[in-house]
């Protein structure tokens, strides 16, 4: 049980409660049917229009996010271009900023 100045957290109590709640949920779960009668194609993934031609390719994930943040990502990807000279320029920028901050403030 730890307590920072402003809050507290006890993992053991949490786990005891989770254990108890799991028992309750398991009871609810066992009220339901466990399996299913195996029929032809019943357990195929639903894809309206017949057989699934392309199996899952989970590559273009989070399209919505990248589309919404398009300008930010365009800018970021241009900055991370992998050229060592640019890395050094960033370092020079860092040194300048740090010296400026430390000396002026």
């Amino acid at each position: 049980m730890i307590s920072t100045g402003m809050g507290s957290w006890s993992p053991l109590v949490f786990l005891i409660c989770v254990a108890f709640i799991s028992v309750v949920v398991q009871i609810i779960r066992s009220l339901g049917e466990g399996g299913f009668r195996k029929e032809e194609d019943k357990a195929e993934a639903f894809f309206s229009g017949g057989r699934l031609l392309i199996k899952n390719r989970v590559m273009d994930v989070y399209w919505g996010f990248f589309d919404a943040m398009g300008r930010y990502y365009g800018w970021m990807k241009r900055m991370h271009n992998g050229i060592v000279n640019d890395y050094v320029y960033w370092f020079v920028l860092l040194v300048t900023v740090v010296i400026g901050v430390v000396i002026l403030l």
Partner: peptide, 12 residues
Amino acid sequence: KLLVKENIVPDD
């Protein structure tokens, strides 16, 4: 109702 239905788990 849901508890009475079959619990289908896809093959893949």
